[in-house]
Simulated scan of single mutants.
Amino acid sequence: MERFSRDETAATWYELTDGQTRSDGVVRAVSAVTGLLPAVPLDGDAGSDDVMDPLASVIDPDALDNLFERSDDGAVTSITFSYHGLSVTVDASGIIRVSPDEATAESPTRTRVPAPECLRETAGQ
């Protein structure tokens, strides 16, 4: 069962369910906040303003899913990025916080976050 809650700062908190990936949790949380439908893998444009841009347009979903599993020493505790004009923070405990992103609210920009060095080194193995 998905769990959402909101706080006084207009942030939405989403808790991952057992076995759910962080990338799936981010898509579900942002979809719930924006009212947009999750993107589906299609050749070409989805053709609808009601569909989210793919998560991969801002961050590598596989790297996000593996980021905390590869960090057993606790070096990575959270990551924050912008997606659909929202600030998205994913933490090591499986909590996703979605809040208004003041910097991108008027003019969203997309920044691709490369995989951390430790993931790039092991990806080819």
Score class of each variant (00 low, 15 high):
25 G>Y: 06
61 P>D: 05
109 T>H: 13
103 A>E: 12
83 Y>Q: 02
116 P>M: 00
115 A>W: 04
25 G>N: 06
123 A>R: 15
61 P>V: 08
83 Y>H: 05
9 T>H: 04
59 I>D: 02
73 D>S: 14
85 G>F: 07
97 R>P: 03
90 V>N: 00
41 P>T: 05
88 V>Y: 04
52 M>P: 03
99 S>R: 15
82 S>F: 02
49 D>Q: 11
123 A>C: 08
89 T>P: 01
107 S>E: 13
40 V>W: 05
91 D>E: 07
116 P>E: 01
57 S>T: 13
23 S>V: 02
4 F>K: 04
55 L>R: 01
52 M>I: 08
13 W>N: 04
41 P>Q: 06
29 A>S: 13
100 P>N: 03
10 A>V: 11
76 V>Q: 12
58 V>P: 03
45 D>W: 14
77 T>E: 15
121 E>H: 11
85 G>T: 07
95 I>Q: 09
85 G>W: 04
93 S>M: 06
111 T>P: 00
99 S>E: 15
75 A>S: 14
35 G>C: 07
66 N>S: 12
51 V>M: 08
87 S>P: 00
125 Q>Y: 13
121 E>K: 15
113 V>M: 09
1 M>F: 09
120 R>H: 08
98 V>K: 06
57 S>H: 06
28 R>A: 15
106 E>P: 03
106 E>M: 12
94 G>K: 01
114 P>I: 02
33 V>T: 06
113 V>D: 00
58 V>D: 07
61 P>A: 11
114 P>W: 02
125 Q>N: 14
98 V>S: 02
23 S>T: 01
84 H>V: 00
112 R>P: 00
9 T>Q: 01
101 D>I: 05
124 G>R: 14
75 A>Y: 11
85 G>N: 06
30 V>R: 00
68 F>V: 09
119 L>E: 11
99 S>M: 13
43 D>Y: 14
84 H>T: 00
8 E>T: 05
86 L>A: 06
120 R>A: 11
14 Y>F: 15
124 G>A: 14
34 T>K: 08
125 Q>D: 14
98 V>G: 05
93 S>Q: 09
19 G>V: 08
6 R>I: 08
104 T>W: 04
55 L>H: 01
98 V>W: 03
56 A>W: 07
49 D>T: 15
21 T>C: 04
98 V>T: 02
73 D>G: 14
19 G>H: 09
117 E>Q: 13
7 D>I: 02
86 L>Q: 10
89 T>I: 06
42 L>W: 05
62 D>I: 11
121 E>L: 15
1 M>G: 14
118 C>N: 13
91 D>L: 01
11 A>K: 04
113 V>C: 01
76 V>L: 10
104 T>G: 02
39 A>L: 00
2 E>V: 14
38 P>C: 01
110 R>Y: 12
108 P>L: 04
16 L>V: 10
92 A>K: 09
109 T>Y: 13
81 F>H: 05
86 L>W: 06
